[in-house]
Design a protein around this nucleic acid. Structure first.
Length: 469
RNA sequence: GGCGACUUAGCCAAGUGGUAAGGCACGGGACUGCAACUCCCUGAUCACCGGUUCAAAUCCGAUAGUCGCCUCCA
C-alpha cells in the first residue's frame, strides 16, 4: 500500500490517509440533483473524485464507493418557502418528476462515460430510501435532536456541542439574508436548524409524497446523504467528497445528524473540490447559460480534452475556464496522444528501471492528488532511457488513474469504401501534379478534399489522409 | 459584517528553507514545392513591502489584487 496524503477539510491540514479498516476505503460522493444537465463545472468535481478513487486503487486499496442521486427534496432554499428543484424541472419541461429524474440521470452518466469517469460501485436514488430516512428521523426525535414545528421536522442544532466542525463560522455573524431571495423560516428554533421532513410545504402540487409518522410529505435534502451512506457503507466512513460549496450547510448538517444518530464520530476525511469559474465568476446553472460536455463536443473539443484541462490543475485551486486555455490543452492532448501512438512495441520490460517512474507517479498522487505533477511524470517517461515496450507499459498503468485514453488503440473508423476509393484517386492525381511541379493544381486538389472534410498530409512514407472530426 | 482560499514566464503549472520541473503558445533553425506533422534551440528571481535565517518562491507580519462560502449550486 502506497502512502496517500490528503488535505482534510475537517482539520485544514494535509495528513496521511489512514483507513478505518486496513486496505479498504469507504468513500461517499454527493451525487447530482437530476433536474437539469450537468455543466462542466459540476463535472470538474466528479472528474477529480474519480481520480481520487483511482488513486486509492492505484495505491493498492480496495475501494467501495457510493453515490446518491438526488431526485427529491433538494429545495432552492432550506427554508420552508423553498421550491423543489425537481418540481421546477418538471414544470419547465411539462413532464413528470420521475421522467425528469430518469432523463437527467441518464444524461449525467452519459457525460461521465465520455469523460472516463467510473460509475461508483453503488448508485442510490434518494427515492429508494424513504424507509431509511424515516427510521433515522424517528431516532433523532427520540433522542431529542429533532423536533416538530409547523408540521415539519427540524434538526435542533443547539443540542450539539459543536455544530460548525467544517468551517469556522460564528453563529452571531451568520447572515441569513446573505442571498436576498431567501426568506427566514419562522418555525425554526435556531437559525441554523434545518428540515429533516417536510409536510407543510406550501407547494401542494409536490408530486412525490410518502406517508410518515409526521404526516404525508417528503424528506429534506441533507438527510439523504447521511442515510444512504450509512445504509451502504455502515457507521464508519473513511472519506466523503463533494464540491466546496457543500461544506456549509450541506456537509455540516450531514455531520450533525449522522453523529447525533450514530452517537460517535462518523467520517474521518472530507475532500472538497474547488469551483470552476469563468471570467465572470462561478459557473452556475441558475445563471442561465451554462457549458455542457455536449456543447464542447459540438465546438470540436474531445471530452477528454476537458478532463486533461482539469488534471493539469489541482483540485484545490480555483480554475478559470476559457476557450483560449482549452485550445491550449487541446493542442497538448493531441500532441501527447500522437507521441504515445508513435511508440513501438519492441523490447523486454525493464522492470528495474521502470520502478523509478512508478514511484514518481505514485508519489505525485500521494502528494494530495497532485495531478499536474503526475502528468509531468508522463512526459518524463516519454523522454526516459527506456525501451518502447516499457514506456508503453508504464503509460498504460498511469492511464488507469488519469483515464485519458493515452494508450488506447485508435480504432480505424469504418470508412465508406467508395469515399476511400475517391480520396485515393485524388491523392494519386495530386501526386502526378506534384511530380510535374504543377503545384497550383496540387494545392487545388488538397483544397477540394479539405472542403469535403478530408485532410491530407505529406509524410516521408507518402501521403496520408484523415477525416476531420 | 464574519469565515476561507489564491497570487510563480504570454497561458496552464511543479516547487513544503539551499540559489526556479514540465506542458502549450510565440520566436529561431532542420525537413518540406508550400502547408501540416516531426525534431532541435530559445524565456521568469517567484504580487508588493518588511522581518527571521549562513541561506526564502518556500517561515513570520503587513499591504494590494482576485475569488469563494455565510441556507440554489459541484
Amino acid at each position: 500500500m502506497k502512502e496517500i496524503n490528503l488535505y482534510n477539510t475537517l482539520t485544514k491540514k494535509i495528513e496521511p490517509f489512514v483507513a478505518n479498516e486496513v486496505g479498504k476505503v469507504k468513500m461517499y460522493t454527493c451525487g447530482p440533483t437530476v433536474y437539469h444537465f450537468a455543466h462542466i463545472g459540476n463535472l470538474r468535481s466528479y472528474i477529480m473524485e474519480d481520480v481520487l478513487e483511482k488513486s486509492f486503487r492505484y495505491a493498492g486499496y480496495d475501494v467501495k464507493r457510493v453515490m446518491n442521486i438526488t431526485d427529491v427534496g433538494h429545495l432552492s432554499s432550506d427554508a420552508d418557502s423553498g421550491e423543489d428543484k425537481m418540481l421546477m424541472g418538471a414544470k419547465r419541461e411539462h413532464k413528470s418528476v420521475m421522467e425528469i429524474a430518469a432523463f437527467y440521470r441518464d444524461a449525467f452518466f452519459e457525460d461521465c462515460r465520455k469523460l472516463n469517469i467510473k460509475t461508483p460501485d453503488v448508485v442510490e436514488p434518494a427515492t429508494n430510501c424513504i424507509p431509511e430516512f424515516i427510521k433515522m428521523i424517528e431516532k433523532l426525535i427520540e433522542t431529542g435532536y429533532a423536533y416538530t414545528a409547523g408540521g415539519n421536522v427540524y434538526f435542533d442544532t443547539e443540542k450539539l456541542e459543536r455544530y460548525y466542525v467544517l468551517s469556522n463560522q460564528n453563529e452571531e455573524e451568520l447572515m441569513v439574508g446573505a442571498r436576498d431571495d431567501v426568506e427566514e423560516d419562522i418555525n425554526k428554533k435556531n437559525k441554523t436548524d434545518f428540515v429533516l421532513w417536510f409536510t407543510k410545504s406550501k407547494f401542494d402540487d409536490q408530486e412525490l409524497k410518502w406517508e410518515s409518522p409526521w404526516g404525508t410529505g417528503y424528506p429534506g435534502w441533507h438527510i439523504e446523504c447521511s442515510a444512504i451512506s450509512i445504509k451502504h457503507l455502515g457507521e464508519q466512513l473513511d472519506i466523503h467528497c463533494g464540491g466546496i460549496d457543500n461544506v456549509f450547510p450541506h456537509h455540516t448538517n450531514e455531520i450533525a445528524q449522522s453523529e447525533a444518530y450514530l452517537g460517535h464520530k462518523w467520517c474521518n476525511y472530507w475532500f472538497h473540490v474547488l469551483h470552476l469559474n469563468d471570467n465572470t465568476g462561478k459557473m452556475s446553472k441558475s445563471k442561465g447559460d451554462f457549458l455542457t460536455v455536449s456543447l464542447l463536443e459540438r465546438k470540436g473539443y474531445h471530452p477528454l480534452v476537458y478532463r486533461l484541462f482539469c488534471l493539469q490543475s489541482h483540485y484545490r485551486k480555483p480554475l478559470v475556464f476559457s476557450y483560449d486555455v482549452l485550445d491550449n490543452v487541446k493542442a497538448t492532448y493531441e500532441k501527447l496522444v500522437k507521441k504515445i501512438a508513435s511508440l513501438g512495441e519492441s523490447g523486454e520490460l525493464e522492470n528495474e528501471r521502470m520502478a523509478e517512474y512508478r514511484e514518481a507517479f505514485a508519489g505525485a498522487l500521494g502528494n494530495d492528488i497532485n495531478t499536474s505533477q503526475a502528468l509531468t511524470v508522463v512526459y518524463d517517461v516519454l523522454k526516459a532511457d527506456l525501451n518502447d515496450a516499457s514506456k508503453r507499459a508504464l503509460l498504460n498503468e498511469f492511464d488507469a488513474v488519469l483515464s485519458l485514453d493515452l494508450t488506447k488503440e485508435t480504432e480505424s473508423e469504418e470508412v465508406d469504401v467508395r469515399l476511400a476509393a475517391y480520396v485515393e484517386e485524388m491523392i494519386e492525381k495530386r501526386k502526378i501534379a506534384r511530380k510535374e511541379k504543377d503545384f497550383a493544381r496540387a494545392d487545388a486538389i488538397r483544397d477540394e478534399l479539405l472542403q469535403k472534410g478530408i485532410e491530407i498530409k505529406d509524410t516521408r512514407e507518402g501521403t496520408t489522409w484523415s477525416l476531420l472530426s
